[in-house]
């Protein structure tokens, strides 16, 4: 089971065991990670599940859809190079031990 390190807005870290195949958003909700609201429950419609990933793993996660790309520009916290909607990312070994930062609005 990959281990995900959520970096919270107050600087604290919350490390959780994640199940491969679930989305990063679902993993965050199951572990009550503060700052992941996920109003639309994974439909890429609300942009309230914004996370920032290390840039060097972006390519391993596959391309960003046009829809997600558009949505990311309007998330409450400003977009960064490693920004993604966590509901559009499936947990895999590529995320093992990776720091997933919750950006401050």
């Amino acid at each position: 089971m990959p281990k995900i390190r959520f970096l919270l807005t107050d600087g604290a870290e919350l490390a959780v065991e994640a199940q491969s195949g679930r989305t990063l958003m679902e993993t965050a909700l199951e572990n009550s990670v503060p700052g992941i609201i996920a109003e639309c429950n994974g439909s890429a419609a609300c942009a309230t599940c914004h996370v920032v990933l290390p840039e060097n793993i972006m390519s391993a996660l596959g391309p960003i859809s046009e829809h997600e790309n558009d949505m990311l520009d309007f998330a409450e916290a400003p977009r960064e190079p490693g920004s993604r909607l966590s509901c559009q990312i499936k947990v895999s070994d590529a995320l093992d031990n990776v720091s997933v930062r919750i950006p401050a609005a």
Binding site: E39, C40, C46, T48
Partner: peptide, 14 residues
């Protein structure tokens, strides 16, 4: 705090 005026889940207001 988030509200529910636009609904929630997959039918979240388009």
């Amino acid at each position: 705090k988030s509200h529910l005026a636009f609904g929630a889940g997959s039918h979240f207001c388009a």
